[in-house]
Design a protein around this nucleic acid. Structure first.
Lengths: 341, 341
DNA sequence: TTGTATGCGTTATCAC
DNA sequence: GTGATAACGCATACAA
């Protein structure tokens, strides 16, 4: 910048004023501006974000804390975040909590110390109490995505998990299913809400039969073990709702391994609509997550609108609607002997 | 830091010397050091990375340029990078090129301007000539992962794609297959090398039959269209080698949709061994990528060893070996009429 | 309309 | 052993 000033014959502050963009408090002569810009270009000047940040300005960094990048759903979400951020000239700093509680806490510290202009949390971190605590009173705005339950201490963008599960269950009931099992993950965030929605629905219909609600790790192996557990039941379900697509993938795999035909003998559904859901065998009936819309909403809140740290009650907490996607993994219930034939 | 100095009763420089870690040029009284540390802790002092970076020190930022985060393979790679980086106190800044040529170029500029201490490129970006050009003479060390061809102008860590493909082909030949097709992606990086390896292998055996080498986008839909194209052949292959697991997923899906049994009527293989490969239907025979080892090697080169920018010829370019994983998607070739029965 | 001077938080180079 | 001071690159309050 000093070089630009020398080359143009003006002072360094003038260069700064011209180059810092539109928001010039004081007017600047047009020819000066042009000369500065030309010089800057010829010198290949690029502002130093570190210095900008030091000076108390924006760092144009968006911190993202995610539980598990390997989860195809979150991978897609990160892509969406990256796109939205880039559209605003922001870069994404990745914080990877990979499941460990203390990690996420440290992460927040790191991200905040890096003076991220904003922090986005992907997934529920409520099993890490200190994190939530640190978040309050944070000078940098934080938005939680797919946090599930909303403890009202933080801004968030959520999906209507209950509506999604209800749509799935209604679809199955419409196909004639009465014995519907649910494969849940840890009672955290979205997954927990989905489980609760299932329980509510079943309670209205007489309660959850023993063993119809199973827990597993949120990955394909979890789906395998979940199906195994349900098949050990005396009166196994004719349909299994998985709280997640990756879980459903495991379900399909396990069913195939046991010679159970989907959907003739067993209907399977997922949640999220990850890219591969369309190409599972058979193609998975699932609930489509409005990922891009949700991410866009979150980034807009974070960067464009700017949450007022002083007034948490004013923070928006939009809840978006998911939509049912019917594919080939669900079908009408078939009489048992026919199915087994 | 000023507060710490005041509280301790020493000067700010002393505080800096104590807190900047081990590399103290001059000795410091033990009690002073302890008092400073205690004060810093009680005040909750945390160094400001921006100021550190400004002062010309390390910024502890590792830039990662990736083509497509949605690709499950790269998602896993990013996780590995994140882990390795975290182990060294580094944060990951994500640069997402999402396919567009100009994007990746801009990305490099951004990452460099951000004073990343090092940059990691995931996947081949050689279709973006300006990027490669900018990379030379870059003050910050760059390592390319899965770049495939090695133009010797950049440090890299690669996998032996030829060995992987040869292992797959030998496996298929051992099962009796002679009519083996190959589904390739764009002629870029690893995928290109795999294709070349296939062509070489087939050339030794009499050449690639017409239509046995097909191209498609590197995703499940690509696999679907690839299979369609091959089945239109008068004498379709009995086995198809996909250059990628996601492609193989599409292949399996398309085969199922057409009522073709895998592996009885058609053997299918992939490459990468993404987490879901083990749970495809049937479980995918593929080539396991030594992702963690490769990432560890790259990060070690980048951060621990530190490449000498002055001497590109001295840059290491290790090539790691993949390994064949035989699962259920490959089987012995079956007489055509039997298979069709 | 433009130039001068100051400070952001740190580390490094000098003196003492 | 430790303290004062300059500098990193930039934005702004103030002076001209």
């Amino acid at each position: 910048m000093r070089d630009v000033a020398r080359l143009t014959g003006v002072s360094q502050s003038t260069v700064s004023r011209v180059l810092s963009g539109a928001a010039t408090a004081v007017p600047i002569a047009d020819d000066t501006r042009e000369r500065v810009i030309a010089a800057a270009r010829s010198l290949g000047y690029r502002p130093n974000p570190l210095a900008r940040g030091l000076r108390g300005m924006k760092t144009m960094l968006l911190g993202v804390i995610v539980r598990d990048i390997t989860d195809p759903f979150f991978a897609g979400a990160i892509e969406a975040v990256s796109l939205e951020a880039a559209a605003r000239g922001y870069n994404v700093v990745l914080g990877h909590a990979h499941g460990r509680a203390d990690e996420a806490i440290a992460l927040w510290g790191v991200l905040e110390a890096r003076h991220c202009d904003a922090i986005l949390m992907l997934g529920d971190m409520s099993d890490q109490p200190r994190l939530a605590e640190d978040l309050r009173g944070s000078p940098v705005p934080v938005v939680a995505l797919w946090e599930g339950s909303k403890p009202a201490g933080i801004a968030s963008v959520s999906v209507d998990n209950r509506a999604g599960i209800r749509a799935v269950l209604a679809h199955l009931v419409g196909l004639g299913h009465r014995r519907i099992g649910f494969l849940a993950g840890r009672r955290l965030g979205d997954i927990r809400e989905r489980e609760d929605a299932y329980v509510e629905f079943m309670t209205d219909g007489g309660g959850v039969p023993d063993g119809y609600l199973q827990y597993a790790s949120n990955d394909p192996p979890g789906g395998v073990s979940g199906l195994t557990a349900m098949l050990e039941l005396g009166d196994p379900p004719t349909a299994v709702v998985a709280s997640t697509d990756v879980l459903a993938m495991g379900l399909l795999f396990a069913a195939h391994g046991r010679g159970i035909h989907v959907p003739e003998q067993l209907s399977v559904t997922g949640f999220d609509d990850i890219p591969l859901a369309e190409f599972s065998i058979p193609a998975l009936t699932t609930v489509r997550m409005p990922t891009r819309e949700m991410v866009a909403a979150a980034v807009t809140m974070l960067i464009d609108d700017g949450l007022d740290p002083a007034d948490p009650s004013a923070w928006p907490r939009p809840i978006l609607a998911p939509s049912l996607v019917v594919r080939a993994s669900t079908g009408p219930v078939v009489a048992r002997d026919t199915a087994n034939a």
